[in-house]
Each structure stands twice: as structure tokens, then as C-alpha cells.
Design a protein around this nucleic acid. Structure first.
Length: 430
RNA sequence: GUGGGCGUAGCUCAGCUGGUUAGAGCGCCAGGUUGUGGCCCUGGAGGUCGGGGGUUCAAGUCCCCUCGCUCACCCCA
């Protein structure tokens, strides 16, 4: 077992991970809170499941030959020798929880969780990122697909995002996909020599992968290849049409993408992806999902339909930054206490303000008045509450506005909290 | 896993063909204003020049190794 050097002792987050400091962390939480409100208002309940699972959960669900399982999973044996893995994607855990607890169907669950993949980091791609998602189990109805897509679209638009495109496609099912794959394989095999290096190899194991190869050689071959959407069985074709009609009725614009091939083995029928046009990086997928009618069975349950999606929180925030939307910040402090009379007032007045539900902070270490005023200004507080020897003697507090105009005024010590509350009410404008 | 770019103060960066005590802007601290922030002025603190080895009288600068960051491929949110 090789012991790779860490970091020369430097204080540094592991490769591909990062710290999110205030105020960015505030938007991070705020976006997640909006998602929670949206999905809870649509009948989804929060599922909190462990951040790691037995590795087999993901192996069975995602597919052994997939990169995410094959070479990117954080997999390890614990002290009991059990093979565990940090969650690399969201859906398999939800299905595992379903099989364990057997909630009444239909079951609509949502989650917000960190995901881990040992990939090479690059712009908008991390080894730990966060996804917001929903899964609906036990519903085969195409309208469930429409609901899922509508929710994802609403979330993104609700943040103010506009420069993104929804791509939808269909993977078919056990009835029509095998036939299509052999048809596709036949076409690709006939042009084997024209394909790029990698896909010449991959052609026989996973021909559908060739469809989303970006190299021009492959593009040329696949342009003339048979399309899955033209070879769907009647049931799948009807389902897809119903999804398209539903999105149209709800005013969700979607582009049909016959090349859309999503990474995981478990998808059947509907698949979809949201691509941002605002992100200046190669990784521009904000989120995606689809239907997975075979997954529950793959994990050992009875045949049970399911549909869901995951949205990458980091990428959503990058897109917001790029589009200049969702610039919300935390509410400012109501008051900052400046005490140059020994510190008792700062201690007691700050506590009184906080007990009254006001947002308040103060300076420590007996700094000079100038220094304390600087801190007050920097804190973003609306008011500075100044207590010096003079105020102590007259039992008053000097209430000084820090933003906008308006002069300072003296307030009786016993009426400060009420005065700050009035100031807040007056300036909230709500 | 593959390939390119880059590592100099808290942050963003200058440091020409190797040459004395390594600089700027912003930020921070203090003073100007012994009761007042934001603007301005003055001063100050803060650097193993990512780390290790080598070449040289002399290395931030050249060579090798290593760690890390970054962008792209692969793949993916």
C-alpha cells in the first residue's frame, strides 16, 4: 500500500475540495432553502440518508463499467472490513432507503447532500460537490416525469437564471432498446475505421456512448446513424409524446436531443439535462435526471417505476454569478455597540438587544473609539450605539445612523431597545 | 489516467539577459482628530520568494526532483 505524500504539512483542503466562506456560504444555504421550500410545497419529504453506503449499492445501481464506479468512487474498507463508499450520486441511496423502509407508494422524497468522486478537478468540477434532488418512486405516469422537470426548471428560473437550455430524450426500455442497440452497432461497425481511437474499442461494449462523443470523426459517423427516438416501441413513444405535451402545456421550453445519453445504466425512457449557456467552462451541465423503471429491481426489489433528478449546487451558483442574478445577501445587523466606558454596557446592552430578537454585535478588547467605529462601519450595521463616560453618567445611549443621512441622537438607556426596533421597522420598507 | 499554464506579503500582481537590506496597489494596525466610521494624509506590521537538491563567487531569477494550484481531454453536477 503506497503512502502518497499529503501536502508538505501545509494547511490546505484536500485536492478538489474547497472551503466556502461567508458571504458565499450564505447564498449556498439560501439557494438550498429555496429548493426545500419548492419541493416541500409539491409534496416531497426530506430523506436524510448516510453520506456513505455499502459500496455494492452503487455498484449494482450505476453499473460496474461506468467510470463513476470503476475509477472515481471513494471506496474503502472500514475497521470491520466492510466495503463502504462515499456517495458518488444521489439516486441509488434513495432506492436503497426505499427498499429498507418500504414507505407506501407513491413515495416522493427530496434530498440535499454532498457527493464525492475522485475526478481530476477543473473549472466547475470538484471532488466534493453538492446536489439538490428529488426522486418519485411507484409512479409510471408520464406526468410524473413532467412534474420532475417542471420542478427543476422552476427552481432554476426562480433564482433568476434564464440562459440555460433543457434537453430531453428517451432511452427506450427493455422492449425497444436492445433492438435499437444492435441496429446502431451494425451501423457503427460498418464505419468502424472512421471512428476515433477510443470508440473503436468501446463500440462493442457500449455503442450508445459513441453518440455523445464530441470528436468530429465520430460525429460524422453518428450523424447518419439510426436514432433511438425513431425506434421506440409504441409504449415508449407514447410516453415520450405525453411528456412533450405536458411540458408544452406547462410552458417549459425543451429541446429534443436524440443524442442525449446519460451516464448511468439505470435510466429508462425519459432523460433530461439542463445546460447553462452562461458558464464559461467545459462543464456546463447544471443538473439532470430521468426515469429509472428498472433500478429498484436491480437493487433487489420488485419492479417499481421511478423518476428523479439531481442539480449541482456549485454549478447553479456559478451560473448565477455569471448571469448576475441571485445576488441576495444576509440581512444587515440592526446595531453595533461601541463602548468606551469600560465594557459593561457593551456586554449588557448587546445581550438585551439580542434577547429582543434584534441582530447585534459589538467590539471587544477595549479598543479605541475610532477603532470600534471602524468595526461598526465594516459590520454593515444600520446603527452604532455609543456608550461613553458621558452617557454612563446621564444614563443615555447615543444612537448614530451609519448608513444614509440623519444625525445622531441621544436616547434614554431604558428605551434603546425600543428605539432600535423602531429604526428597523422604519427602514425595512416591508 | 493524459496534456498545457502557473506557484513572490492576507488578496491581486511587479521583479529586464542571475548581482547589495525583495517591491507596488488593495486589505490590516496605529496616528493626524485624547468622544465618532465611511473620504484624505502619514507611519507601521506582515514574505521559509511552494518544498528539496544542484550549478555558481552570487539563485526569486538557471537545471533536476517533488508538492500544490489552474485549464483542457476523459467522464460528469
Amino acid at each position: 500500500m503506497g503512502s502518497a505524500p499529503e501536502n508538505g504539512g501545509a494547511a490546505r483542503a484536500p485536492t478538489g475540495t474547497r472551503d466556502v466562506l461567508w458571504p458565499e456560504s450564505w447564498r449556498f444555504e439560501a439557494a438550498a432553502a429555496r429548493f426545500a421550500q419548492l419541493v416541500q410545497g409539491a409534496g416531497y419529504g426530506l430523506l436524510q440518508s448516510p453520506t456513505f453506503e455499502y459500496a455494492s449499492v452503487f455498484r449494482k445501481g450505476i453499473g460496474e463499467e461506468n467510470d463513476v464506479v470503476g475509477r472515481e468512487m471513494y471506496e474503502f474498507a472500514d475497521r470491520d472490513g466492510k466495503l463502504l463508499a462515499l456517495r458518488p450520486e444521489g439516486t441509488a441511496s434513495v432506492v436503497r432507503a426505499y427498499l429498507q423502509h418500504r414507505p407506501t407508494l407513491p413515495w416522493k422524497a427530496w434530498y440535499a447532500t454532498p457527493l464525492f468522486r475522485h475526478e481530476r478537478p477543473q473549472a466547475a468540477r470538484y471532488r466534493q460537490h453538492h446536489q439538490l434532488g428529488i426522486e418519485a418512486l411507484g409512479v409510471a405516469d408520464a406526468d410524473m416525469d413532467v412534474e420532475a422537470i417542471w420542478i427543476a426548471d422552476s427552481f432554476l428560473r426562480g433564482l433568476g437564471l434564464a440562459r440555460f437550455t433543457l434537453h430531453i430524450g428517451s432511452m427506450g426500455d427493455g422492449t425497444c432498446r436492445p433492438g435499437y442497440i444492435s441496429l446502431l452497432h451494425e451501423h457503427l461497425a460498418a464505419h468502424r475505421d472512421e471512428l476515433c481511437e477510443e470508440h473503436r474499442q468501446r463500440l462493442d461494449t457500449n455503442p450508445m456512448r459513441v453518440l455523445d462523443c464530441k470528436r468530429p470523426e465520430c460525429r460524422a459517423v453518428t450523424a447518419g446513424a439510426p436514432r433511438l427516438l425513431d425506434h421506440l416501441c409504441d409504449a415508449c413513444a407514447g410516453h415520450f409524446q405525453r411528456v412533450r405535451d405536458g411540458l408544452g402545456a406547462l410552458g417549459v421550453p425543451a429541446e429534443i436531443d436524440y443524442r442525449l445519453v446519460r451516464g448511468f445504466d439505470y435510466y429508462t425512457r425519459t432523460t433530461f439535462e439542463f445546460a447553462s449557456a452562461a458558464i464559461e467552462a467545459a462543464q456546463n451541465a447544471l443538473g439532470g435526471g430521468g426515469r429509472y423503471d428498472g433500478l429498484v429491481e436491480m437493487l433487489g426489489g420488485d419492479p417499481t417505476p421511478g423518476v428523479g433528478f439531481g442539480i449541482g449546487l456549485e454549478r447553479v451558483l456559478i451560473a448565477c454569478e455569471a448571469e448576475g442574478v441571485f445576488t441576495d445577501g444576509p440581512p444587515p445587523l440592526d446595531a453595533f455597540v461601541v463602548d468606551v466606558a469600560g465594557g459593561d454596557a457593551a456586554r449588557d446592552l448587546t445581550a438585551a438587544l439580542r434577547r429582543a430578537g434584534l441582530r447585534a454585535d459589538r467590539a471587544f478588547d477595549g479598543r479605541s473609539m475610532k477603532a470600534q467605529m471602524k468595526l461598526a462601519d465594516r459590520s454593515g450595521a444600520r446603527l452604532a450605539l455609543i456608550v461613553g463616560p458621558e452617557e454612563l453618567r446621564t444614563e443615555t445611549v447615543l444612537l448614530r445612523p451609519l448608513r444614509g443621512d440623519g444625525g445622531q441622537r441621544s436616547v434614554k438607556a431604558g428605551e434603546v431597545v425600543a428605539a432600535v426596533q423602531e429604526e428597523r421597522a422604519g427602514k425595512d420598507g416591508t
